[in-house]
Every structure is written in structure tokens, then in C-alpha cells.
Nucleic acid binder design. Structure first.
Lengths: 226, 226
DNA sequence: GCAAAAGTGTTTTATTTACACCCATGA
DNA sequence: TCATGGGTGTAAATAAAACACTTTTGC
């Protein structure tokens, strides 16, 4: 415990982090949830999160909770706080303030299992999740808002995809996050005119005409990236 | 003190709020600072702020700190949190997390004096403040960023002005916040085409040609307003 | 040759930027 | 009448939106 000399009426609050971790699966924006194994809200789905440790930075705590509660093996491509939830009654155990974080997990992060006191972990449609514990639906709503706002910024959609990708795949990421359809021609025009994609020469095979592969021309460091 | 059953390694942190309160004075964007009267950083300028009380919401605490530390008499027109500063070493007394808020004070909020353990309070140029305590320069920088982003949103600039105002005055608010010059004709075109300003008929006298007075056509509730 | 998905251009509209002179008032 | 600040319009450039057919491949 920290030894902090404070005025008597000052609140010592439990300091927590929660993480809304997003990825694309099956052409859909999905969010990573854990099933709580202990009270309160046992057996209810929740965002992975928990209390910050002594001497631990907020984003370190968010990363640790993400790893230990869900056993995701990949590094998140983006991890940043977006809002702090501190309503007096949000946690029945007492005053707990949660610094909510948003994370983007790269393509390939499929296998998750529960860890710590989580019974299990799994991916759920971000726009239509199950009933969530605490005020986690509020947190998720705000996380999606932030994700949509950040989308154009620094080509965030690329973080959801592998190194090489096709333009229809990229458009799918935009559509899944924005939850609406985009015009194919206008989308291609806009993305290619930014000049940050470079054709990767090869072509990927499947049904129908093969698509051109692209990769990002130069990796720009995104603020909020680890 | 709250009685909170927590895992042993969990951090109980001091929960604080700090407020970057802005107003326009002398055609300049100014920020409200207090001179600290106690350690650490005694006799150093800082953003008004302090510890959250038991059972007190975060924005309530921000409002209370603003009032008691600076004795501003007017209601802020906007008060919203924008980022949480929680670096382990940001406060020498121990782990203190500060939920930083941004406030806009309306025209007329001139007289301020210190309150509580603040030696004094005063307005300073927001873009060129004095040396600040703790990480308050970081907080201020981020508050200005947020203010600039929010500027267009819901006609935030009007909150800095009295009920009736002239277009040159309004342009002055934009320029002070953005810290750059704007084109007069384009500015008027853009603002008037939004259709939210209505001419107030009268004219204000001074040097040079009198300016048309305007008022907002309909008051739209701004999210984050009290 | 047909099903499936990729790829491609033009027109219209709206938005943004650049830019210079006249007007109303008080001293 | 002059100094001071307020007010006005147009043209060019850029960005955004609407819209339908052709191409390439595997089966």
C-alpha cells in the first residue's frame, strides 16, 4: 500500500483499468470479453480489466490485464486511454475509478482463453454484445465512438490487417468499424490518393478475380502505440 | 475513508481533479492559475485542483475545486474531463491520479482571489503561462489541444462571450484559441451560413464604424455542460 | 460460359481558400 | 477630412458524392 499523507476528507479510491480490445473476425468488428469468475457480477461478461498494481503505469496495467485475463498472445497495435469512469456508485464494492483504454489487436489474434479469475474469454460482435457487467456497456459505447473518430487518423484500419492486404479487405475494416456501407470507387480513390499504400506486386488467390496486394509505404509511428 | 475489499497488490491511489479553466481577457485566451500555499511546490503556480471527496462525483469535485481555490463567482459554461494523468512519479507524495478537466468561464469572470490553501489566483496567457507545478504544463497543453478540437463543435466560442456580441469579437475568440489569424470575409460567411446566429438589431458604439450585434438563435444544450 | 469478386472514370455538388475595396462613425 | 474599425463578393481550387459497366479468374 502506498503511504500517502492526505487531507482527511480526501478519497482513496480503488484505481482500475478496463480495456476494450477490438479485432476483425469474420468481416465483423469484434470486442474481447471475459466471463467474470468472482463477485460482483460473477458469470457475467465484462471488459477485461482490474486493479492497477503499485508502481505500475496506467497503460502497463491495461496491457497486463489484457494479457493475463484473456491470454492473448499478440501485442496490441494500439493502446490508449480514452475516458475515466468514476461515478460514485459504479462499483458496489466502494469507490473504484476505472481509466478505460481502447486497444486494437492485429489480425491473427483468434485463440483466447480465460486467465486469472476469469472463467473464459471470447470475441463478441462489438455493435451487438451480450449484457455486460458494471457500466461496461457505457465504456464500450464510448470506445466505439473513439475508434470511429480515430479511424482516419494515421490509417488506423491498417492495424487490424496483416502486413499485406487487398483494398476490398481494407474497405471491409472501414465498413465494420463505421457500421455502414461505403462506395467502392470513392473509397479506392481516397485511400490511394493519400499515397501511403504501395502495391506489393503479388496477387492473392480465391474465388473470383484475384485482388492486388498492398502494404503500407512507410510505417509512421502512431501516438498511443506501445 | 472508504472501506474497499481489494486484492493485496491493488493500488489505492489518491484521487484528484485538476481544472484548466479558460476565459478571454484583453483579446487573449487566458487560463486561471493559483499560487500554491503548501508543499509540494509551494509558491509555484498551478492549475486549481485537489482531492475528490468521499461520495463526490468527479465533475462535482472539479467544480468545487474551481470555486473554492479561486473564488470565481460565475458558473462555468462547459466543464468536462479530457484526460487522466496517472504517472507513478507525478506527485512526490505518492500515487495520485488526476482526472483533468477543461472549463470555459463566461465573459465577466475577472475578479479572482485565492481560497483554501491557495495564496492567490490570477489569469495568465494560456499559450505562454509561467512555470507550473507537477505535470501541469502537460495538462495545460492537452487542454488547449482539446479546446481547439472542440471549438467548432456546438459553437463553443460563444460560451466565451456575453449574450450579444459582434462578429469581430467572435472572430477574436477563434483567433485567440487557435493562436492564428483568420480571414474576415471567409469567417463571416462560414459562421452566418450556419444559421445559428440572429441579428440583435442594435449597434454597439466605439471607435470606427459601429458593429452589428448578434445573439445565438437557439440555445442548444452542449454535452458536458452542467 | 458462367459465377464471383476486382477494378475502373466522369459528372455534379459542396466546401474551402484567396483576395481588395468601400462604408459608417467620432474626433 | 481623416483615422478607425466594420462590412461586403467573386473566382479558383479542392474535396466529396453519386453512379454502372468491364475484367479476370476458377469451375
Amino acid at each position: 500500500m502506498s503511504t500517502l499523507i492526505l487531507p482527511p476528507q480526501a478519497t482513496q479510491a480503488g484505481l482500475a483499468v478496463d480495456v476494450a480490445a477490438f479485432a476483425m473476425h469474420a468481416g465483423e468488428l469484434q470486442v474481447l470479453l471475459v466471463e467474470r469468475g468472482s463477485l460482483p457480477h460473477a458469470r457475467t461478461w465484462a471488459l477485461p480489466g482490474g486493479f492497477v498494481h503499485l508502481g505500475e503505469e496506467l497503460n502497463e496495467a491495461a496491457l497486463r490485464e489484457l494479457r493475463t485475463k484473456t491470454s492473448v498472445e499478440l501485442e496490441p497495435r494500439l493502446l490508449e486511454q480514452f475516458y475515466t469512469f468514476g461515478a460514485v456508485e459504479r462499483d458496489p464494492r466502494g469507490r473504484v475509478v476505472s481509466v478505460a483504454h481502447m486497444a486494437v489487436l492485429p489480425h491473427g489474434t483468434v485463440r483466447v482463453t480465460g486467465g486469472g479469475n476469469a472463467l473464459g474469454a471470447g470475441w463478441f460482435p462489438a455493435h451487438t454484445p451480450p449484457t455486460l457487467a458494471f457500466d461496461h456497456q457505457d465504456i464500450l459505447n464510448r470506445a466505439i465512438d473513439r475508434l470511429q473518430i480515430r479511424l482516419e487518423y494515421a490509417l488506423l484500419a491498417l492495424e487490424f490487417l496483416p502486413d499485406t492486404f487487398t483494398l476490398p479487405e481494407l474497405q471491409g475494416v472501414y465498413e465494420a468499424i463505421l457500421n455502414k456501407q461505403l462506395d467502392k470507387r470513392n473509397f479506392r480513390k481516397r485511400l490511394l490518393s493519400q499515397g501511403v499504400l504501395t502495391t506489393s506486386g503479388e496477387r492473392r488467390s480465391g474465388v473470383g478475380r484475384p485482388a492486388q496486394l498492398y502494404r503500407r509505404a512507410s510505417r509512421v509511428r502512431i501516438p498511443g502505440t506501445l
